[in-house]
Design a protein around this nucleic acid. Structure first.
Length: 615
DNA sequence: TGCCCTTTGAAGTAG
DNA sequence: CTACTTCAAAGGGCA
């Protein structure tokens, strides 16, 4: 991977400092162009979600009724339209700008499924496939090509192979930065064959395949002929040759829904393939390849629900023992990943490579910023994925509840008790970026500074409190004052706080000065969430009115990259999302150390980390 | 070994 | 309804 050195040293710190992401610059540009378009981020987000929901609604209105949510044509059509549109847009500037991502491409998840406990592959091992519409209609049956592909492929993880997940890989057109996971809506297609349809079984593997190519979603990238065995980030989620992947019966689960999913053959096979035998609910038509479902961590299916149902016998008295036992025995069904998590999984490796950082906390900060820098469409992609994953999860584990994973921690029980922050602290505004890579000079609102780490940065650890040095909870952080070393500015900003990290602060001396300055440095300072204290009305107001200081912060990186033709598809609203506010004027136009991190990525994933004041 | 850090988002709980 | 909490991933660091 291209190191981010912008001139910078190889060492982490230096490097980080210098890193800037082009995409941010692009984002900024957008912002500047659309400064007026500020919208409430929250609204935007919700709109994204809604869109996604909407898409699916057409197909799944009454999902509850028809358990096997038919994912529908409508959705498919829409998606296809979107894709086509995207493709068209890209024609002009083809990958110059972050093509929107995903559409034309398929992201193949690394072999290590997020849920697979023992993933053997590195997270980075992700392949992005380009989707070509034309390929979509490939007949599923082409064993030949499939075989060929198979042969050509290097050995895949056993589970994968066994599953024979068909994925088409087009090495040549892979776009590094814009992976997209495509779902085959088919999975949910109402018309899917009933379980018994396993009839269409892969002769070789014995694994059921999609009944008919025709069912394959139009944009389903995988052509049977070119099937590869690549896992998807949502690996288990990835359709196999257009077949529904998820349907699973709830054998050992709580069945909130009566029909519990009409599992369709493909799903069954998928599930079976993902679950170890013992994990698979006693169930009829599941295939057992011994592959656990990603969401299941332990060896046994968490059947608490069913257990509870069945045996309320075990009442409280056994609970403790029971819990322990369950802990050990029961598999832990993990929460489905949300949009951001999906994004993180996908991008983490990239960021790591760029920054040479390995610390997840730092990486996550970067990713968080990048996330905000994403265009609406890009985020929408992930929201959609997340939505699907949730649906899938729901189907797989109808009785599962997030509460199940609380482990009794809620309200102060056992483990992780995250920071005890009190209301008032308002962390939301914290903007410090310890990681040089972020280089975003931070501190925006700082009424709620973060921990010492965040406040002082890695290079000033001498200022950290003891616990912080030990990576423990910051003792200074706890208090609303939030002041570790230096008190917040009179205006509430921590601008006068010690510079975070040299790298972050960057050359510009006047950090204190100005919000504007700060703003400039703060590429993505905005959080999508409205300030906690704002009432909805206020919130709304904000969206309409000139952005509050905080909002202003957003100027992200100045680095406008060349051509950021960006996505032509973006509409003004897009910007609002990525950059809720921000005025062009405040943003430095030229100041950017943009060292492009990634040749290819640079265009797409701009995150201008470094901000230097102009002049 | 297990928690912390850090991010966003979803979902649960408490008031 | 609002506010708050937990947990998803990740991996280095620490007790």
């Amino acid at each position: 991977m291209p190191q981010l050195n912008g001139g910078g040293g190889d060492d982490l710190g230096a490097n980080d400092e210098m890193i800037s992401f082009k995409d941010e610059g692009e984002q900024e540009e957008k912002i500047s162009e659309n400064s007026s378009a500020e919208r409430d981020l929250a609204d935007v987000k919700s709109s994204l979600v809604n869109e996604s929901e909407t898409n699916q609604n057409s197909s799944s209105d009454s999902e509850a009724e028809r358990r096997p949510p038919p994912r529908s044509e409508s959705f498919r059509d829409k998606t296809r339209e979107s894709l086509e549109e995207a493709a068209k847009r890209q024609d002009g500037g083809l990958f110059k700008s972050p093509p929107y991502p995903g559409y034309p491409f398929i992201m193949i998840p690394d072999l290590t499924s997020p849920y697979l406990p023992n993933g053997s592959l590195s997270p980075t091992a992700r392949t992005y496939l380009q989707m070509k519409w034309p390929l979509l209609d490939v007949q599923a049956g082409s064993l030949q090509s499939r075989q060929a592909l198979k042969d050509a492929r290097s050995p895949s993880p056993a589970h994968i192979v066994s599953n024979k997940v068909p994925v088409v890989q087009h090495p040549h057109h892979v776009h590094p930065l814009t992976p997209l996971i495509t779902y085959s809506n088919e999975h949910f297609t109402p018309g899917n064959p009933p379980p018994h349809l396993q009839a269409d079984v892969d002769p070789k593997t014995g694994i059921p395949r999609p009944p008919h190519p025709s069912d394959i979603s139009p944009y389903y990238p995988l052509s049977p002929g070119t099937v590869g065995q690549i896992p998807h980030p949502l690996g288990w989620l990835v359709p196999q040759q257009g077949q529904p992947v998820y349907p699973i019966t709830t054998g050992g689960f709580r069945h909130p829904y009566p029909t519990a999913l009409t599992v369709n053959a493909s799903m069954s096979s998928l599930l079976s393939s993902r679950f170890p035998h013992h994990m698979v609910p006693p169930h009829h038509s599941l295939h057992t390849t011994g592959i656990p479902h990603p969401a299941i961590v332990t060896s046994n299916v968490k059947q608490e629900s069913s257990h509870s149902d069945i045996g309320s016998l075990n009442s409280s008295k056994h609970q403790d023992a029971k819990k322990e036992e369950e802990k050990k025995k029961q598999p832990h069904i993990k929460k489905p990943l949300n949009a951001f998590m999906l994004y993180m999984k996908e991008m983490r490796a990239k960021v790591v490579a760029e920054c040479t950082l390995k610390e997840s906390a730092a990486i996550n900060q970067i990713l968080g910023r990048r996330w905000h820098a994403l265009s609406r469409e890009e985020q929408a992609k992930y929201y959609e994925l997340a939505r699907k994953e949730r649906q899938l999860h729901m189907q797989l584990y109808p009785g599962w509840s997030a509460r199940d994973n609380y482990a009794g921690n809620y309200q102060g029980k056992k483990k992780k008790r995250k920071r005890e922050k009190q209301a008032g602290e308002g962390n939301e505004h914290r903007e410090y970026f310890p990681n040089p890579c972020l280089s975003l000079p931070p501190i925006t609102d700082l009424s709620a500074p973060k921990k010492c780490r965040a406040r002082f940065g890695l290079d000033q650890q001498n200022n950290w409190c003891g616990p912080c040095r030990r990576k423990k909870k910051c003792i200074r952080y706890i208090q609303g004052e939030g002041s570790c070393a230096s008190p917040p500015s009179s205006d509430g900003s921590l601008l006068d706080s010690p510079p975070i990290s040299p790298s972050m602060v960057s050359p510009s001396p006047s950090s204190k000065e100005s919000k504007p300055q700060t703003e400039q440095m703060q590429p993505l300072s905005l959080t999508m969430k409205p300030p906690p204290l704002l009432s909805s009305s206020q919130h709304q107001h904000l969206s309409m009115a000139p952005p509050p200081p905080l909002a202003l912060l957003d100027n992200s990186g100045p680095c406008k990259t060349s051509g950021s033709a960006h996505n032509g598809s973006l509409d003004p609203s897009d910007m609002s999302l990525s950059r809720p506010t921000g005025s062009a004027s405040s943003r430095p136009t030229s100041a950017c150390h943009s060292h492009s991190l990634l040749p290819s990525s640079a265009t797409t994933q701009p995150l201008s980390l470094v901000t230097k004041s102009i002049d």
